[in-house]
Design a protein around this nucleic acid. Structure first.
Lengths: 111, 111
DNA sequence: CCGCATACATAGAACCGCTAGGTATTTATA
DNA sequence: TATAAATACCTAGCGGTTCTATGTATGCGG
């Protein structure tokens, strides 16, 4: 499976919202889940992921909170907000429209 | 249909190759065809389209040639090259992989 | 004759993910 | 027991790509 990570542009927020909507997660876990669930397709760089999480939190779509593990290690868990859920629904619909439009070009309907 | 033109990032080249592969076209026509075939979804700006065509020609994926109309107006027709066709096949497969990966996140397979 | 459509073009702004670096702890390996 | 790899977070600046804004020029309809 050839890497075309750049196709992701514009979809990172939707991916993150969708994932965290299913279950609250911390950043490092998000990277693992994305890679695992996509069978190795999505390999987010930290320089991509963390700023994206910060952006979504700042926008009020995610809510983060620090949790300290037994070994005193820190994790920042993110959960989706009401607003985040609304935006997710919207973006999912937009993604479907976009996919449909792409396919109309790839396989033009008979005129 | 809400506009999310930004999802297009990284897909412009594939769209152009796919369209011109079906039939040689000049720039202005490309804009009209994209808008028409996608039922109004894709509305390319000239500042997006022309540099993209130049880039693809420079990369040897498209070949352009000037044609003069009866009224002495100029049009630059683009057709796809052998190399362009190869890349198109590749990118189409990559697009399908990407779509599959996205859906794996949206609707995770049961574990 | 004025505005819109046709037809091309480009400079610079803006955006966004990536590169490459940093800190610190724990666990596996040689 | 070193030392490498994994865990877990972070950010400044680079680079590529799309958009904004603008320019040129002709043809056509009202």
């Amino acid at each position: 499976m050839a890497a075309r990570q750049d196709l992701i542009k514009g979809n990172i927020d939707t991916l993150l919202l969708s994932l965290i909507n299913q279950q609250p997660m911390y950043g490092y876990q998000v990277m693992q889940e994305l890679e695992g669930r996509s069978q190795g397709y999505f390999k987010f760089k930290e320089g991509t992921l963390y700023p994206a999480l910060h952006r979504l939190e700042k926008a009020g779509l995610l809510q983060g909170s620090w949790q300290t593990l037994a070994n005193s290690r820190q994790r920042r868990y993110y959960s989706i907000t009401e607003k985040g859920r609304r935006i997710l629904v919207e973006q999912t619909a937009q993604w479907q429209d976009f996919f449909a439009a792409m396919n109309l070009i790839f396989q033009p309907a008979k005129s």
